[in-house]
Design a binder for these strands. Sequence first.
DNA 1: GCTTCACCTGACCATATGGTCAGGAATGGA
DNA 2: TCCATTCCTGACCATATGGTCAGGTGAAGC
Lengths: 210, 210
Amino acid sequence: MTAAERPLRRTDIRREREALILQAAEKVFAEAGFGGATMQLIADMAGLPKANLHYYFATKEDLYRQVVRNIFEIWLHAAGSMDEAAGPAEGIGAYIDAKMEISRRHPHGSKVWASEVMHGAPVIQDYLETTLRDWTEGRARVIQRWIDEGRMARVDPRHLLYMLWATTQHYADFGHQIETLNGGKPLSDRQWKDAKDSVKTLILRGIGVI
Amino acid sequence: MTAAERPLRRTDIRREREALILQAAEKVFAEAGFGGATMQLIADMAGLPKANLHYYFATKEDLYRQVVRNIFEIWLHAAGSMDEAAGPAEGIGAYIDAKMEISRRHPHGSKVWASEVMHGAPVIQDYLETTLRDWTEGRARVIQRWIDEGRMARVDPRHLLYMLWATTQHYADFGHQIETLNGGKPLSDRQWKDAKDSVKTLILRGIGVI
DNA sequence: GCTTCACCTGACCATATGGTCAGGAATGGA
DNA sequence: TCCATTCCTGACCATATGGTCAGGTGAAGC
């Protein structure tokens, strides 16, 4: 049912099939972990024969690597919300909004990333040491400047960033626990808004801009 | 080297061997996930033959279940810091201290728990629905009372609890990422203190008790 | 119509893994 | 000393899994 039914133009096949496989893989890796995921499961989820997966992705690790990169790209893109901001309230508020929205829309990707990092980042260590480190240092400088200009409370920028990541991603990574504590029901639109508002209020007050 | 060298009294053998195996299992499950962990790896880590593991723990899942329960017990115990408190600043501050200390001392257990929940809590779902739910509701009521008494800002108690869990456990679950961003070096005593202080300051100010 | 080439896949293989078991060793009480 | 019980383990097995490959199919270009 997830497989495309209508015939595909020759040129589009590769792109569409890869996207289909990546989507299935993201879900399976998130639900079972790298070790627990099987190519067969991913294939079934995508509605394709297992051998077809190996046609597009040489190995399980290649497929996994691509999934991890995807979520990282999404997060990096969200980081833009912080850059264009005039001040801490606006910048950090927008960043929280963006990260919470990603937690809601891409919970699988978030879990795959969390799992990858928890296991010592075997396949994206270089990303951590280059892209993520640069991004973090840049953002920490921006926050430090805001502090020095007296526009927010004096907090360690690093730990503030960790708190932003932890809090927003928690709604994806621990979504099952939250759902269980919510009577077994997924958060409604209203509850997601409450969550977002709660996080924003707490943190913005925490850095003294409310 | 991890195996006990000196002869053990008959009565102590079972207890000591189980503890040894559980310790090794916790580490391996944390580093590889349930699916990626192998009984052979755990056996090697414990310095015992694989068959010996099966003598004490019938199946891989039994062993895993025990590991998950252990960390949950530790967390429950830490919850006491919140109960005996007179007010929000003291109670939540102590809870953060306790949780941060656990993140430092039991990073493996925290990761195993995180992994379990991320994968839909296949083996501890009943814990979530009973013990954890009860605990959460009790604590939420305490927080709500503090709010009603005007002793802290008006925030959704649930989301405050999620933030406490997310932020403190982040230092264990994403310890590798934090270490990488710290120049590849583990946090020093001083840095752990800074982390703890940062988290406490941010949250306590966030709930309006600073 | 013919050729090319990307796309597809059933069948197969080598390996790794969870788990079993028969037999052995050590301990401690009678 | 003897016996019962617990502890221990090398060897083995059934199964699952990542990956391969030879052969097939059909659309696009000429």
